[in-house]
Amino acid sequence: MNNKFMKYYYNIVIFFLILTGFGQMPIFKRFYIADIPGLGWLAEFYKTFFIHNLAATLLIVFIFYLLTTFLLNKKRVKLTMTGIVWVASLTGLLLTGILLTIKNFPINPYPPGFVVFLYLSHIALVMAFCMTALYSKILKKEYIIK
């Protein structure tokens, strides 16, 4: 995988994760977005559920690819403050996402209330993640000290 391919891969996966993530809430139909030709699937909960899980799987592949590459090349990276927030929010999203995925199987693993906490954390984390990405894009803030 070259760097350009990796960038496209990451951007596409994140785009679909955010889009289908918001699709877990019944908002796309209410606000006419699903009426736009070609976007009807955004209001189909089983489709967005499937694509969210697929994109999350592809993101995990990406993260482990990146971590292993750094380790093999013995690269040391120093993160900027923006980078630290990005890594922290992404890690939090992955952890809460995995815990939420586990409960979708025919098991009942958590005490009542914990799922509410997981969902609210997942939403708060995606907000932090999006803000960081926007901040870095608009103000051209790097994640890594070069």
Binding site: F50, N53, L54, T57, F64, Y65, T68, I98, F105
Partner: peptide, 18 residues
């Protein structure tokens, strides 16, 4: 849920690719 099961092997796929 079937596609979610792929998350279990996803780290291995990433490591293998690297």
């Amino acid at each position: 849920n079937n596609i979610a099961l792929a998350m279990i092997v996803a780290p291995l796929a990433g490591i293998a690719a690297a």
